[in-house]
Design a protein around this nucleic acid. Structure first.
Lengths: 248, 248
DNA sequence: AGACTTTTAAATGTCAGACAAATAAAATGT
DNA sequence: ACATTTTATTTGTCTGACATTTAAAAGTCT
C-alpha cells in the first residue's frame, strides 16, 4: 500500500483509499486487525492525526470498526444489511431532499421495484409475511387511527410484501426509496384522506399474494401506482393554488 | 446542535451525527458554509483534531466538501448521482465479497431490477440508447474479441438498456448489483464460452426495445436469467469437481 | 492447584500548540 | 484601469503529551 505525497489530494483521503482498496480486493479480510495507528503512521510516513482522519473516513463507511485498549485497534468490518440499509436510506433521502431526484422519479423507481418483488413474494411468502399484511390491513381499516399510524402501517405492509420475496438485496434497495419518500407520502395521505381506496388495493394485493397469483398482485400494484401519482398531483396543485392566493 | 460528553460514543462520531442530522433535516442547506474548524471546536467544546475527525467522517459520505484558503471551509455538498453510484457499488461489492449475499441472491435482484426497467426502456429509450445496444451487439459478435472486452461490452449493453428507462434511481441501484457481480460473471463467460446464445438474446432484447414491445423484452430477459443461472451452476460444479480431484 | 485480585502494557481517544500551504479579498503600485 | 503584492483566514499536517480502556500477565490468597 503506497501513497503519493505529491498528489493534490489529502493524505488522509489517499490513505483511506489505499486501505479501502486493500479491503475490496481481499488483501485485508474480515475481522483482520489493521496495524496500530502508530505503525500505520510509520508505514505511510505521516503523523498519527492524519492516519486517524483516514481511519475515521473508513469507519464512516462501516468498512472498519475500532476497539480501545490493549489488543484493540481497527478491524475490517463484515458489512451487515443494517449498514447497507442505513446507507441506502441516507443517500436516497439526501437525493430527494436536495432535489437531485424528483418525487415522480423516486415514486416510479419505488413501484417498479415493488412490482419486481411481487411475483417472487407471491411464490415464496411465508405465512408470517401474509399475517403481517393482513394485520396491517385490519389496522388501516380502523376509523380512529391517526394519520401517522396509518402511514406507519402502510410502510409495514409494503415492507412485508417486499420481504416476502426473500431477497435481502431487493429489500434494502427498496428501503431507501420508501423511507426517503415518507414525508411526501405522509402529506398525501394526510390531505387526501383516501384510506378506503388504499385499503381496498392492499386487500387485493394480499389476496393475490395469498393465492400466489402474481398477475393480480401486479395489476393491483399498477393501480396503486397510478392512484398515488394522481393524489400527488392534486396535492401539488392544491399547494400551488395556496401559493397563488398568498401572493395574489 | 448539542452533544453529550458523557456518552460512550466517540466525540467525533457524535459531532458528525449532529451535523448530519442538521443536513438531513434541512437546517443546513446545500452549499451553505459550516463554521470554521476552530469555531466548531469552540461550539462543541472539543479540540480541533476531534472536529476534523468528525468532518472527515462526513466527507467520506459525500455530505460535505472542504476548500482550503481564506473564505474556504466545509460546505454542504449537493449529493450527485456519481456519489450515489460509487457508494452503491462499494456496498454491493462488499456484501458479495464478504459472503453476506450469495451470488444467486445478487443475480436474482439484478435481473428483477432489469426486468423492472425493461418496460420503461421500451417506452422511452432514445435512438441513442438503441444505437449503443446495437453497437455492443456488433462488437460482441466479432470472433477475435477478448474475454475481457466481451464482458465490458456486456456491461455497456445492459447499462444502455437500463439507462433507456430514464430513471436515474433505477440506474444507480442496478449499477451496484452489476458491478459487484462482475468478477463472477467474467468467470462464467470465460469458461463457458457461450457467446452465441448471449448475443442472440441481446439481439432479441434490442429488437423488442426498438419495437417498444415490453413483453418480448421481458421474455428474453427471463431466458437470459435462466441461462446465466445455468451457466453459473455448471461453473460451480466444475469448480467443485476440480477441488475433489485435488483433495482425492 | 485454582480462583480471585492487582498490575501492567498497549492501544485508541483527546487535547494543546505550532507551522505549512492555499486562497481570495484588500491594498498597493504602475 | 489593470496588474501586482500583501494580508488575513482557513484547512492540512506535525509533534508531543495525557487520559481512558482493555485484556493479558503477574501476583495473592485459599
Amino acid at each position: 500500500m503506497k501513497i503519493d505525497p505529491n498528489s493534490s489530494a489529502d493524505l488522509s483521503a489517499q490513505i483511506a483509499q489505499a486501505i479501502k482498496d486493500a479491503i475490496v480486493e481481499g488483501r485485508l479480510i474480515v475481522d483482520e486487525r489493521l496495524p496500530s495507528e502508530a505503525e500505520l503512521a510509520d508505514q505511510f510516513q505521516v503523523s498519527r492525526p492524519t492516519v486517524r482522519e483516514a481511519l475515521k473516513r473508513l469507519a464512516a463507511q462501516s468498512l472498519i470498526r475500532t476497539q480501545r485498549g490493549a489488543f484493540g485497534g481497527a478491524f475490517v468490518n463484515r458489512i451487515s444489511f443494517e449498514d447497507a440499509y442505513s446507507q441506502q436510506i441516507t443517500t436516497s433521502t439526501l437525493l430527494l431532499s436536495m432535489n437531485a431526484v424528483s418525487f415522480d422519479t423516486a415514486c416510479e423507481a419505488r413501484f417498479a421495484l415493488e412490482r419486481a418483488c411481487a411475483p417472487l413474494s407471491a411464490q415464496r411468502r411465508s405465512p408470517d409475511h401474509l399475517a403481517t399484511m393482513r394485520a396491517e390491513i385490519v389496522r388501516q381499516s380502523q376509523p380512529g387511527l391517526s394519520d401517522e399510524s396509518f402511514c406507519a402501517s402502510d410502510v409495514t405492509f409494503h415492507r412485508a410484501l417486499v420481504d416476502g420475496a426473500g431477497n435481502p438485496v431487493l429489500s434494502y434497495q427498496l428501503a431507501g426509496a420508501v423511507e426517503a419518500m415518507q414525508p411526501l407520502m405522509n402529506m398525501i395521505t394526510f390531505t387526501a384522506r383516501s384510506r378506503e381506496v388504499i385499503v381496498g388495493l392492499h386487500t387485493r394485493i394480499a389476496d393475490a399474494i395469498e393465492a400466489r397469483d402474481a398477475a393480480v398482485a401486479d395489476a393491483a400494484l399498477v393501480e396503486l401506482t397510478t392512484y398515488t401519482m394522481t393524489l400527488k398531483d392534486s396535492v401539488m396543485a392544491a399547494r400551488a393554488a395556496a401559493r397563488g392566493t398568498l401572493s395574489g
